[in-house]
Design a binder for these strands. Structure first.
Length: 424
DNA sequence: GATGAGCGC
């Protein structure tokens, strides 16, 4: 019999209320009420909505009159599909520390793509009480073939790990490991080395010879074209990471034959694509581009060229027009970041043609997206005007949302009567 | 090969 006493366990939660997460964004209070009432009398449902747009935040609380029904609902309705998406149920746990400690959290990979959340729960549930489990899916709901199972106790998790790691499910050998955050996981150490700028007559055996002084090699190839001629690059795989590092250190930039070799870590196609994408962003930092907002509609590109030209060399001016009408925004490029900064310091907030101009550095699109994600993660509350604009953008982007209306500059979607709580 | 997100009146 296992000794449970020394292992941490999540304490029993309040027993009337269930948290429902991962909801499809079109799931409504009514959908939830219809579903949960099947089990027993529901006291109320709170589907959380954005305070301005009233779009669903995709999670809800379901309060039952009797804890018994809450428990039954949690067991029998978990992972059921609502509007085509499986819901994920948990006991309400309001203590954020307890929610985030990650007790008993397992990572499962090499799942067959047919395995769904419910089956994952069934297989792992034999070993203890699961607080949350799900399979990672892409935007179309296709399984990414890995998932997460979180047990209420470390003890159950370790039982499941030792029993199920290496076991077979639908013909696939599962890997079960403790879940580690990205920061806790060390990068897999590469052993494969890429070499380019080889002379066309450089052979595999000379390649092997050249690299073997750095350590034991498991394979060395030169890539050929359809006619069997060298394409001038190849791969050398070492037995150890240290040897691979030494080889890069020793041979990168070396002049061999008539060429200067490039030797570096071999990348997969996707890794290389990511690398190039980042390199591209670095190359074009875009930081000397300005966005000007709140311009009067009659301000022209020439006007702006004059005003901004006082601060440096303006290389590009573009006013944004929609249906032939200025939208009050413009992009202005300086040849130097320094000049752009000067223009901001001087012109941002200036009264110009009856309006206060806003002048700020333009973001690179991808960097801005990342920045926004970081802010969201920190639960950053943007300033009012900003939030309003963002909501409008979201609403416009979401063509599926029904009954949009514009009230006092706020875009409201599916505004429920009264408050957003839907009492039954 | 792969390592989420998540909680109020």
């Amino acid at each position: 019999m296992a000794n449970f006493t020394h292992l941490p366990t999540i304490p029993p939660p309040p027993l009337f209320s269930i948290y429902a997460g991962d909801l499809h964004h079109h799931v409504t209070e009514r959908d939830l009420y219809s579903l949960f009432s099947i089990i027993g009398p529901v006291h109320n449902i709170h589907l959380f909505r954005h305070p301005f747009s009233h779009k669903s935040l995709c999670y809800a609380f379901i309060h039952f009159y009797f804890p018994h029904y809450a428990a039954v609902a949690l067991n029998s309705l978990n992972h059921i599909e609502l509007r085509g998406k499986p819901i994920r149920l948990m006991w309400v746990q309001r203590d954020p520390v307890l929610r985030k400690v990650g007790i008993g959290n397992l990572f499962v990979k090499n799942l067959d793509s047919s395995v769904n959340d419910a089956e994952l729960q069934e297989v792992f549930g034999v070993f203890g009480v699961i607080s949350s489990c799900k399979i990672a899916r892409d935007g179309d709901g296709v399984s990414k073939r890995f998932g997460f199972v979180q047990f209420c106790s470390e003890d159950s998790a370790s039982c499941a790990l030792s029993a199920l790691n290496g076991s077979v499910l639908h013909g696939k050998i599962l890997t079960v490991a403790k879940f580690l955050k990205k920061s806790e996981r060390k990068e897999p150490q590469f052993t494969n080395v890429y070499v380019k700028n080889l002379d066309k007559d450089f052979t595999e055996s000379s390649l092997r010879e050249k690299f073997s002084e750095y350590g034991k090699i498991t394979s060395a190839v030169i890539m050929n074209d359809a006619e069997g001629k060298s394409r001038g690059f190849g791969f050398v795989n070492f037995e150890s990471h240290e040897s691979a590092m030494k080889a890069i250190d020793g041979l990168n930039g070396a002049e061999i034959g008539t060429k200067k070799w490039f030797v570096g870590k071999a990348m997969t196609k996707s890794q290389r694509a990511e690398f190039l994408r980042r390199a591209h962003i670095k190359q074009k930092p875009n930081v000397s581009n300005l966005i000007v907002r709140n311009l009067a509609s009659f301000v022209t590109e020439n006007d702006l060229k004059q005003v901004f030209g006082a601060f440096g060399n303006v290389t590009f001016v573009k006013v944004s027009y929609r249906n032939g009408v200025s939208s009050g925004m413009a992009c202005i490029c300086f040849s130097k970041l320094e000049e752009a900064r000067k223009a901001i310091a001087f012109l941002n907030g200036c009264f110009y043609n009856g309006r206060y101009m806003s002048v700020s550095l333009a973001w690179h699109k991808e960097e801005q997206a990342k920045h926004l994600q970081t802010l969201l993660a920190l639960r950053y509350k943007p300033p009012f005007a900003y939030k309003e604009k963002k909501v409008r953008k979201e609403v416009l982007a979401n063509k599926e949302s029904s009954c949009e209306c514009d009230v006092d500059g706020f875009v409201l979607v599916d505004k429920p009567s009264g408050n957003s709580e839907w009492d039954v």
